[in-house]
Computed example of a mutant assay.
Amino acid sequence: MDKKPKKIIIGISVGDLNGVGAELILKTFEDPRMFEFCTPVVFASNKAFQFLKKHLNMPVATQRVDSFERLSDKKLNIFSIWKESFNFEFGQETEEAGKRAIESLQEATKALKEKKIDALLTAPINKSNIQTKDFSFPGHTDFLAKELEGNPLMFMVSDELKVGLLTDHVAVKDVAGTITPKLIREKITTIYESLKKDFRVNKPKIAVLGINPHAGDNGVIGKEDEDILKPTIKDLYQKGMMVFGPYAADGFFGSNTYQKFDAVIASYHDQGLIPFKTLTFGNGVNYTAGLEAVRTSPDHGTAYDIAGKGKADASSFKEALFTAIQIVKNRKEYNGLTSNVLRKHKKI
């Protein structure tokens, strides 16, 4: 008799405990049917989750574990990485919350590197209270870039729209100077490969948005689009990638032109994320493309204003969970189809 396939193990970093992250985790697994899709393990504190279950009146099935060999596939596993009680101050930016968020992320990433978990789902952090002399990253992506192999790229994804960024957490005044032909090639190649491997798009079609208003108007409003973007896009197209642009960003989404492409690449953070969140909020997922491992996150932050009130919407968190599961499956399928192709062909 065939053995039942092992469920995908999803590691979850708890994020800022004074925000909505832990509530989202509990709401996601409040429905026992969720355990049919994966085995979840949260890197946090069992004491903290027992408090939250009582505070939010959410009797989710949980168990404390100290070994990956003892994971339950029918409960929310809490891998306790600290034993002290956590002093909850919902909606407040505290040093203690930042410290625990870092510890959770570091332990979850370690498990990912050691292949104890199949994918990482990160609950929202506060970029301010995580800053210490030993941890000075502006966000998850930058930390994972250091810890994991690959060229990470913030890739906001949903069923209807996928948006990648040439630059992410860069000041607007520095955007034009940061974008180089080398950077453009790296980012477009990362998205192209991710579409094929992670989302099973056979022949990706990618649109690139201009750096300046109206994509520079043929050099009238800035030279960067003419001198940097256009030649690089043309070169990539001639090498076989279906890459088009640069397009003027202001009318690109309103005219539904984005629907003609598998992905859109924006030049900077707000150029891509404002339309993405406007069109997909609640259903969008922050995926880090280009890494050897799979990491997803919801498309929002800590939501301090509603923390601890039981009002958080878990839709985006659930989407991030399902996206991580699907990408793990897609990668396995892709690797199976593309590894040792010549050898398989010879056998046939």
Rank of each mutant, 00 (worst) to 15 (best):
residue 6 K to W: 02
residue 9 I to S: 08
residue 9 I to W: 04
residue 12 I to A: 03
residue 21 G to W: 13
residue 22 A to Y: 07
residue 23 E to Q: 10
residue 26 L to T: 08
residue 26 L to F: 05
residue 28 T to Q: 10
residue 31 D to Y: 03
residue 32 P to R: 05
residue 33 R to F: 10
residue 34 M to T: 07
residue 35 F to S: 05
residue 40 P to G: 01
residue 40 P to F: 01
residue 46 N to M: 11
residue 52 L to P: 04
residue 54 K to W: 10
residue 57 N to A: 15
residue 61 A to V: 13
residue 65 V to D: 09
residue 66 D to M: 10
residue 70 R to M: 08
residue 71 L to D: 07
residue 73 D to T: 13
residue 75 K to E: 15
residue 75 K to F: 04
residue 78 I to Y: 07
residue 78 I to C: 10
residue 90 F to S: 12
residue 93 E to A: 11
residue 95 E to C: 08
residue 96 E to L: 04
residue 99 K to D: 14
residue 102 I to P: 00
residue 103 E to P: 00
residue 106 Q to I: 13
residue 109 T to F: 07
residue 110 K to I: 09
residue 112 L to C: 08
residue 112 L to P: 10
residue 117 I to L: 12
residue 119 A to R: 02
residue 119 A to Y: 04
residue 120 L to P: 12
residue 129 N to G: 04
residue 129 N to L: 02
residue 129 N to M: 09
residue 132 T to I: 03
residue 138 P to Y: 04
residue 139 G to P: 02
residue 140 H to R: 12
residue 142 D to M: 03
residue 144 L to V: 06
residue 145 A to H: 05
residue 151 N to M: 14
residue 153 L to I: 11
residue 163 V to N: 12
residue 165 L to Y: 01
residue 173 K to F: 04
residue 187 K to C: 05
residue 193 E to C: 03
residue 193 E to K: 15
residue 194 S to L: 08
residue 201 V to W: 09
residue 201 V to N: 11
residue 201 V to Y: 09
residue 205 K to H: 11
residue 208 V to A: 00
residue 211 I to T: 01
residue 213 P to T: 05
residue 213 P to S: 05
residue 217 D to S: 09
residue 219 G to I: 01
residue 221 I to L: 15
residue 223 K to A: 08
residue 228 I to F: 06
residue 228 I to C: 06
residue 228 I to P: 08
residue 232 T to C: 03
residue 235 D to Y: 04
residue 237 Y to H: 08
residue 239 K to L: 01
residue 244 F to M: 11
residue 246 P to T: 01
residue 246 P to E: 00
residue 250 D to N: 05
residue 251 G to Y: 05
residue 252 F to A: 00
residue 253 F to Y: 02
residue 255 S to N: 10
residue 255 S to I: 00
residue 256 N to H: 06
residue 259 Q to Y: 01
residue 263 A to E: 07
residue 267 S to A: 15
residue 277 K to F: 06
residue 278 T to M: 15
residue 281 F to Y: 06
residue 283 N to K: 15
residue 285 V to L: 12
residue 288 T to S: 12
residue 290 G to W: 06
residue 296 T to H: 12
residue 297 S to C: 14
residue 297 S to M: 08
residue 299 D to F: 11
residue 300 H to T: 07
residue 303 A to T: 06
residue 304 Y to L: 06
residue 305 D to M: 06
residue 309 K to M: 15
residue 317 F to W: 11
residue 318 K to G: 09
residue 318 K to E: 09
residue 319 E to P: 05
residue 320 A to N: 01
residue 324 A to N: 15
residue 327 I to G: 12
residue 331 R to F: 08
residue 331 R to G: 07
residue 335 N to W: 14
residue 345 H to V: 13
residue 348 I to H: 14
